[in-house]
Structure formats: structure tokens, C-alpha cells
Design a protein around this nucleic acid. Structure first.
Length: 565
RNA sequence: GCCUGCAUAGCUCAGUGGUAGAGCAUUUGCCUUGUAAGCAAAGGGUCGGGAGUUCAAAUCUCUCUGCAGGCUCCA
């Protein structure tokens, strides 16, 4: 909205003729000439961007009151003056703004409102002192901005990968070839999971859930946005603010969670705890968002949005060593399962930005060090790189370019339980403070999946492969046989991910496509196989073709998938 | 965020101031195939967005966005 404020000796005007068809007829009184003396004439133009009417009126009234106060007048003339803008709002909106402003100003002033949508003759005499002529513009943020959706559509292009410095088995290249995921500039640092990629992610989750259930972890899920207060309590507000996305709801500030712990702690506090509940192991596959410097983002390795396979263990000081050992063992079990080689293990100590006193830190650091020594694992000290609430043990793994990435982390935290006043009732019926261990195994599901893709060069173990079996026909004659085999396998192994390729092209071409997708089992059916009742299988890219009886193939495949070999 | 690059069809890329191209993929025909590319035709583009220089810009300049490597930071 734009307006021109004129402090006048007098202003008089008279409506002559409608300027807009839709405008209602004026009453007899309004048709006559009107005059005001010693007034503030406000010439207004309401614009397209002024969609938030109430806010605009509020701001406009405030401005007018301010000026009227300065020039010390009680008379106001609101005068629609479309010529101030070439981007006018609709007549309905403009009328509404003026009506509402009129009503609000009438509480303190004598207001005359000139009719909207009429050609008017007018005459005025401006005083000429410094405040007698003022022009102002009101822009309300959050109002409907001007945009052109066709233009915007052009701006959101698909993300193009610069692969010039990447290796052939880079997870970003494999992700494209295998149709696993993509990125788009509308969501930097956030993954668009395609069906195939989501399959892998879900399998990793299923495996994780099973293992953690066996290891006596509970599993929870907490909200994505939480009141700012919570982060002030946890210390994130003070120590981690620059990484937090903010949003709001009904004038309350909310943080999009950058970590899962505060939410999990609220579940802990939801009911009284006793030493009998300990060690209380609580897992959460939590999606977190962190504001990162744009230059650090990279494929699945460094994201703004990622999924942590988080868990918090609440225990007594006596139990913590045992728990830390269990976590190290659990981590090593996962690495072994995937055949991943650890590059190194780090012990990260107190950072400059931290909560908790030095006594706490001394104990926490010493405890972690002792556990590592007890486990006889080699580790490096990474001074000052701990979390703001506690020191940590990090497991690092190499990628295809030889860079190392942190996956598992184990963090010992005495400070957060203090801040949240966590308690449990001990044997002696006294309230005591628990110790809290934060830990992840995969670290981030996305990063771990990226590491796995590169580690296996796309050739994932069958249980993780998005498509496990593809059946090809040699000629059109074999198409029925192919479909029959697919049905057969589907019935025998219901969870099997199987498809077929019966396009009218050569076998080498179909094999090539299946190989690019890194499908573990490529089954080929020709006249020979139909006649013999066997299938010819190309296993994990091996050029040697193995012949199977269907039943035999099903038995082996089933075992492999069930045992996650 | 900083430094250095990159952005042309779904993918890989050619085009360096003068009428937007190729291969693969897609669709449609033909072919009926023995383990990483059978043949032909057709369709497919505001050359990432915006601005500037120029008679003329995919091409030169500026700027924004995204990507990549490095720095710094992190799971």
C-alpha cells in the first residue's frame, strides 16, 4: 500500500461520475461537496501485494495516527487515489481496507472518507511545512507476494550432478543408474527416495529393528517440531542455535528438531522411573534437520535432512561401563554383517561450547577412555570435538574417494539429565540422577546407505537388492514360461522382489540393462530350458551361467534372503 | 559460508558469437535372438533462472540457484 499524506489548510471534493461499473450508487448526502479544514488528507492506493488486510490496516492506521500526532490535527480525510500505484488491488479489497481504516481512525479522529471508485473534482491547499507532505509505503511480510507460476516452474530445474571428480562406484552415480534416489534444487540437502532406494532403506530399518528388539531396546517416535522452550532447557538454543530451523504456530516459536534426545527425554519424564527399569534402552529412528553451510553438502554423505538410528540409554553410574561395552559390540556386529572395514575410531573430548562442569567432563572422558582400553581397540584422540553435552566415541569408515565419514557414535552425557532433572528411585528409596548415553550405529541411515553402495559397488547382498531376481525370455515363444516362473517364485517366496523383461530385443541387451541395475539373479528362459525344465541363472555378474532346477533355486534363494547372507 | 570448477533432450556428451546436434533411452514398425548395446522411423529442448553487452548469445560479462572437489564444520 502506498499513501501520500498532505497537511492542508482545507480540502474540498465532489464526486462526479462512477469510475468503476461495480461500484454502488452513492446516497444523496455523499453526492454533495464535502469539505474539511485544518486536516490531514491521506491519498491512498491499495496494491496487489496487500492481501493481509488486517495487518495492512493496522500498520496504515498506526502510520496515520503517528503523522496526525506530529502535525497536531484531529481531522482526517481518507482519499482513494489510484494513481499512486500501477499495481492496484481489486476494488473490493481496496474498499475493505479503507472502510476498516475509517472505522479504526474514527475512535480518535474526525474522519471523512471520500467515495471509492468515483471521478472526483477536488481542491486543496497544502501548508508547506516540513511534515506537510509525506509519502509512505507499507509492506507486510507474509502477504501474498507477486509471482508467476510459469516463470517459477522454469526456475526449479532438476539437479545435475557434476561427476567429473567422482569414481565409477560413487553412490551418487549408482543411485542414478539404479534409480534409487534423486535431488532437486527445491530441497537442497534432502533426499527424494525412489521406490528402489526406499526398498534398501526399509530393509536396513527392518534389520535394525530386529536386532535392537533382541538387544532389549524399546522403540519410540517423537514429534518433528517442538516448542523453543524445550531447546532452551536442553542447551541447544544456546549452543546449537545456528543449526536449527525455526517455525511457528499460533505465535509460539518452534524448532524443527536437530536431534532426538529432548523429545525422547519427555517420554522418560512421562512416568516415574526406578532402578528396576535400568538399563533403560530406548531407540528412535528419528528424522532430523540441521542447517549446514551449503558448501559441505554432498550426496547422501552430508545432508540437511537425515534419519538417525538414535538410541538413549538411561542407567546408573555402575551400569554405564557395561552398557558402553555392549554398544561397542553391537556396532562391531553391524560392521561385520556388512563386511565394512573401520578406518579408525576416535575419542572426541570436551569442546569449547559446552554445558556441564569440568568434574563431569573429567569423569565422562575418563570412562570412555577406560572402556576403549578395556576393549583393546586402537583409537585416536580428537581434542575438542565432543558434543556440547558430552564426550564421544566415533567410528569412521572410508568412501570411494578415500575420505572418512563418521557413522556410529557413542556419547556419554551427565549434563542433560541434570538440565532436565531426570530422576529414578533407587533401592534405598531415594531419588537419584541417571546417566544418559546417546548412541547411533548406522549414524545416519542415508550416509550408511551411501557407504554401503560404494562398498558393494552397487552389488548389494540379495536381501538388500531392490530387485532380487529378473527373468528374461529368449524369444516370444518363451514369454509364457517366463510369466509362469515369476508366478511360481512369487508364490514360494512372497516377499521376493522379482520382475521380468519380455521386450522384443536381444538377450545381450536385456542382460546389459539388468547388469546396470546390479540385479543379483538374472534368470534366462529359452527353448532349451523349457524343454529341460530348468532355468539358466547369471549370478551377481558372473559370466559363468549356472543351471538350476526351479525347486533347487527357490530353496537356495529363500535361505539367502531369510538369513540375510 | 569461502576458494576452484561444473550446469545443453530422461542419461552420457558434442557444439566457443550467426538456423540447437549425436549416441543411448522412449514410442512405433521390422527382427526372434544364447548372457553388457540387432535394424529403421518418429517424438523429445525457452542450452539451470534473471539481467547486461551485441545487428545477433547455448557461446562473452554480471548475478541468483543447484551440484562437485577442497577448506571449515558434522551423523
Amino acid at each position: 500500500m502506498k499513501f501520500l499524506s498532505l497537511h492542508v489548510d482545507y480540502i474540498k471534493f465532489k464526486p462526479l461520475k462512477k469510475a468503476l461499473k461495480k461500484i454502488e450508487e452513492l446516497g444523496e448526502k455523499d453526492k454533495k461537496e464535502q469539505k474539511s479544514k485544518e486536516a490531514l488528507a491521506i491519498l491512498t492506493a491499495v496494491e496487489k501485494s496487500d492481501s493481509n488486510i488486517d495487518e495492512i490496516v493496522k500498520e496504515f492506521v498506526k502510520n496515520v495516527e503517528d503523522i496526525a500526532g506530529q502535525v497536531k490535527t484531529k481531522n482526517i480525510v481518507l482519499y482513494p487515489y489510484a494513481h499512486l500505484s500501477n499495481n492496484l488491488a481489486s476494488s473490493e479489497i481496496a474498499s475493505e481496507v479503507l472502510e476498516k481504516a475509517d472505522k479504526a481512525l474514527k475512535k480518535k479522529f474526525k474522519v471523512i472518507r471520500a467515495p471509492f471508485g468515483y471521478y472526483k473534482e477536488f481542491e486543496l491547499k497544502v501548508k508547506g511545512h516540513p511534515l506537510s507532505e509525506l509519502s509512505r509505503e507499507i509492506n507486510i511480510k507474509g502477504g501474498e507476494e507477486k509471482y508467476n507460476e510459469k516463470q517459477l516452474l522454469r526456475e526449479i530445474s532438476k539437479t545435475k550432478l557434476d561427476s567429473s571428480k567422482l569414481k565409477e562406484n560413487d553412490h551418487r552415480i549408482l543411485g542414478q543408474q539404479m534409480d534409487l534416489f534423486s535431488f532437486n534444487e527445491t530441497a537442497p540437502g534432502m533426499v527424494f527416495w525412489h521406490n528402489n532406494g526406499l526398498v534398501i532403506r526399509d530393509e536396513l530399518i527392518n534389520f535394525w529393528k530386529e536386532v535392537h528388539k533382541t538387544a532389549n531396546y524399546e522403540q519410540i517416535s517423537t514429534p518433528q517440531i517442538l516448542d523453543k522452550k524445550l531447546w532452551q532447557i536442553s542447551g541447544h538454543w544456546e549452543k546449537y542455535k545456528e543449526n536449527i530451523f525455526l517455525t511457528e504456530y499460533e505465535k509460539r516459536q518452534f524448532a524443527v528438531k536437530p536431534m532426538n534426545c529432548p523429545g525422547g527425554i519427555l517420554i522418560y519424564k512421562n512416568s516415574p522411573k526406578s532402578y528396576r527399569n535400568f538399563p533403560l534402552r530406548v531407540g528412535e529412528l528419528g528424522i532430523v534437520h540441521r542447517i549446514e553451510l551449503s558448501g559441505v553438502l554432498g550426496g547422501l554423505f552430508r545432508l540437511i535432512q537425515f534419519t538417525q538410528d538414535d538410541a538413549h540409554i538411561y542407567c546408573t553410574k555402575e551400569q554405564m561401563k557395561e552398557e558402553l561395552i555392549r554398544i561397542i559390540d553391537l556396532s562391531l556386529f553391524f560392521y561385520e554383517k556388512f563386511g565394512l572395514n573401520l578406518d579408525h575410531i576416535e575419542l572426541s573430548t570436551r569442546p569449547e561450547k559446552r554445558i556441564g562442569d569440568d568434574k563431569m567432563w573429567n569423569l565422562a572422558e575418563k570412562t570412555l577412555e577406560n572402556v576403549l582400553k578395556y576393549k583393546k581397540v586402537k583409537f585416536l584422540i580428537n581434542k575438542g570435538d565432543g558434543a556440547f553435552y558430552g564426550p564421544k566415541i566415533d567410528f569412521h569408515v572410508k568412501d570411494s574417494l578415500g575420505r572418512t565419514w563418521q557413522c556410529s557414535t557413542i556419547q556419554l552425557d551427565f549434563a542433560t539429565p541434570e538440565r532436565f532433572e531426570l530422576e529414578y528411585t533407587d533401592k534405598d528409596n531415594k531419588k537419584k540422577r541417571p546417566v544418559m548415553i546417546h548412541r547411533t550405529i548406522y549414524g545416519s541411515l542415508e550416509r550408511f546407505l551411501g557407504i554401503l553402495l560404494e562398498h558393494y559397488k552397487g552389488r548389494l547382498p540379495t536381501w538388500l537388492a531392490p530387485i532380487q531376481v529378473r527373468v528374461l525370455n529368449f524369444t516370444d515363444r518363451n514369454e509364457e514360461a517366463v510369466k509362469k516362473i515369476v508366478r511360481n517364485l512369487d508364490e514360494e517366496i512372497p516377499e521376493l522382489r522379482i520382475d521380468c523383461d519380455v521386450r522384443q530385443t536381444t538377450i545381450p541387451s536385456k542382460v546389459k540393462d539388468a547388469e546396470i541395475m546390479k540385479i543379483p539373479y538374472i534368470v534366462v528362459i529359452g527353448d532349451k530350458e523349457e524343454k529341460q525344465g530348468t532355468i539358466a541363472v547369471r549370478i551377481r555378474g558372473d559370466k559363468k551361467i549356472k543351471n538350476f532346477k526351479i525347486k533347487e533355486f527357490i530353496r537356495e534363494l529363500k535361505q539367502e534372503i531369510e538369513n540375510r547372507i
